[in-house]
């Protein structure tokens, strides 16, 4: 009986035939490249967007701090705005 244990199983791999890449592949590659170009954002655009968002955040924080430092008591605001209620209806 033939001993199959000593046969190199990888010898069979030599019988694999070469195939050709499909003709339409280059067209598809160019389509992929074009679609990637559309998605890609220029670094300068990305940085200007980040800068814009950062500016908005800084302005908001600055306004919040400014408001905190000038908080006035409720009674001062009422008197300054002439909102005192001097009638007995309410």
């Amino acid at each position: 009986m033939k001993n199959t244990n000593n046969i190199d199983p990888t010898n069979r791999l030599a019988s694999i035939q070469k195939v050709h890449a499909p003709e339409y592949m280059l067209t598809r590659i160019y389509a992929k490249i074009d679609s990637l170009k559309e998605i890609k954002v220029k670094p300068s655009t990305a940085w200007s967007m980040i800068g814009g968002v950062a500016m908005v955040i800084i302005i908001n924080v600055a306004i919040l701090f400014q408001n905190n430092s000038t908080i006035q008591s409720e009674s001062t605001i009422i008197s300054e705005m002439g909102m005192e209620i001097n009638n007995s209806i309410y």
């Binding site: 890449a21 592949m25 598809r28 590659i29 992929k32 490249i33 990637l36």
Partner: peptide
Amino acid sequence: VTQDVFVTVHE
């Protein structure tokens, strides 16, 4: 995958 390979090569 072959398409992806050549897209990378192009890039």
